[in-house]
Amino acid sequence: MVGIDGSSELTEDEAELYDRQIRLWGLESQKRLRKARILLIGLQGFGAEICKNIILAGVKAVTILDGGVVKDEDASSQFLAPRDQLGKNRAEASLSRAQQLNPMVKVTADPQDVADKPDTFFGEFDVICATECSVEQLIRINQICREKSIKFFCGDVFGMFGYTFADLQIHEYAEEVTVHKASRSQKSGEPAAKVAKLSPVKETRKQTATFVPLQDVLEFDWSSETYAKRVPKADPSYFLMRVLLRFRSKHGHDPIPKNREKDIEELCKIRDEVLTKLRVPVEKVPDNLFRNVFAEVSPVCAIVGGVMAQEIIKAVSQKESPHNNMFFFNPIKNVGFVDHIGN
């Protein structure tokens, strides 16, 4: 591939292309990005957004893995697969446009189903980001990532709702903090009286964050004394996510637009089961939330895919504090928030 010459220094072409982002996150981050190999599982609208953003950022390689075919609904947010590729494998159909986004990144399409991939397959990546997977596969891949020290991300967009999860295990990163220090050095030209005052100084500090696996998030006990109190005030997003993931496990697919009314009914039923089991009042997830969970809606893919990609960039560049461990987008309130779930 052009520009990747094996040396650790950026070429002039890279410096020119990445100029505006190097000015934001620095050269060191860019150098780390260009070494990162990323596996992206699931390439509907949400996956396509993540794919676009990390390829533009200039990682070393992206493998897009999707065993599914291009469907009608993909037209609501999947912009990498041309519309005339209906019925073709989604990863293969998306390869050409994904590659065009940045010829300096090595992009590979893999048409297999993630469930058919042996554990060894995952070992060759630095970051794995899984979307549109079953809970069983997510837990399996998360476990493999833990064994091989691979940064693990997952997430989904359901209609206008979305979430992300990260398990970076033990993650070290540099964070810029502003501390106030008395400055002694006299600036030339400044009258001497101005010298001894507190001035903000930026310092880079090494920090460590510890993450929990997805399983902990899914097995989290909301009925405990501490958390039961939090439930009435809590945003419904986590519980909505649980209902939607349960629907996926039960039916082997997500709610289908053309079955809209029937699937909303089914979602209400599943909500009652899931929340009762969690010992959370079923009113926590009101029926009307299910009106906005069909297909993957483009602007929300852009929002959640933008957040997810930025978290991947942060993790790879080991710069700035990562979201530990979930991000939710609630379209009713237009709010995006970070939450830590699991002990």
């Binding site: 950022a57 852009a302 933008g306 930025q310």
Partner: peptide, 11 residues
């Protein structure tokens, strides 16, 4: 300027 911020804002 970076892609992700623009994507989120446009969303």
């Amino acid at each position: 300027a970076i892609a992700t911020t623009n994507a989120i804002i446009a969303g």
